[in-house]
């Protein structure tokens, strides 16, 4: 393991908000912005949290599902859907034969997957992942998304286990709806290089709608 600390790809865009930074999972991320009280309100109205620090493991190929299963992870049966593959770990099936495994705040499955050996695993290929990842929650979340995404994301249209590869703010992104400590939130992943842009767009609209940035601490309190 390296001693070097990664920095969240969103850090550049967060700079002016002067968040309190801290390390989670080997990555420096924003823990808090304006303090617990304000962030709690933002969380209720419209809160945006950078969770790029969650560990990820990507794999694709005709044998990818088999391999994950061998590692003891549950994988979704349907294309473009997700399951909790292990406690605290999401497994997203992206299309037919590609998977994204992401440990949530308390998940710990990805570490075990780093044993993957390409030479010994025919039909499965590791996909290096460094996505920028966000949690979007609050009463106005759909209002925000209805501006940034052309898809019908209302509960009546978006199945609770659906993974949607679509465009958000004009760029390719992966999106799903989940329940986090009883609160319904949306997860958004995009290419790491678009991370700052995505943060800027989400925050700009969140602020217009009475919400704002929520640090990792407030998000998981």
């Amino acid at each position: 393991m390296t001693a070097l600390i990664k920095t969240t790809p969103v850090a550049y865009a967060q700079h002016e908000q002067k968040p309190a930074m801290g390390v989670h999972n080997g990555m420096e991320v924003a823990l808090s912005f304006e303090g617990a009280a304000v962030e709690k309100t933002h969380k209720q109205v419209l809160g945006v949290t950078d969770v790029s620090c969650f560990a990820k493991f990507g794999i694709k190929g005709p044998k990818a599902a088999d391999w994950l299963a061998k590692q003891g992870l549950k994988t979704p049966d349907e294309i473009n859907s997700w399951v909790e593959g292990a406690p605290g770990t999401l497994v997203l099936r992206l299309g037919g034969s590609e998977f994204l495994v992401e440990d949530q705040i308390k998940g710990n499955a990805c570490n075990g997957l780093s044993t993957f050996n390409q030479d010994k695993t025919a039909g499965a290929y590791q996909v290096a992942r460094a996505d920028a990842a966000f949690i979007l929650g609050g009463s106005q979340a759909l209002n925000l998304l209805s501006e940034l995404c052309v898809m019908d994301l209302r509960d009546s249209a978006l199945a609770s286990n659906a993974v949607v590869m679509t465009q958000v703010a004009g760029i390719s992104a992966t999106l799903l709806r989940e329940s986090l400590a009883g609160e319904q939130v949306y997860r958004i992943w995009c290419d790491v290089s678009y991370g700052p842009y995505m943060w800027e767009m989400l925050l700009e609209i969140a602020q217009e709608l009475g919400g704002g940035a929520v640090g990792l601490t407030a998000r998981f309190q």
């Binding site: 294309i79 473009n80 009546s156 978006l158 199945a159 659906a162 949607v164």
Partner: peptide, 8 residues
């Protein structure tokens, strides 16, 4: 293939 984005 069953698209999962929309139920309908």
């Amino acid at each position: 293939t069953k698209p999962r984005a929309k139920k309908e």
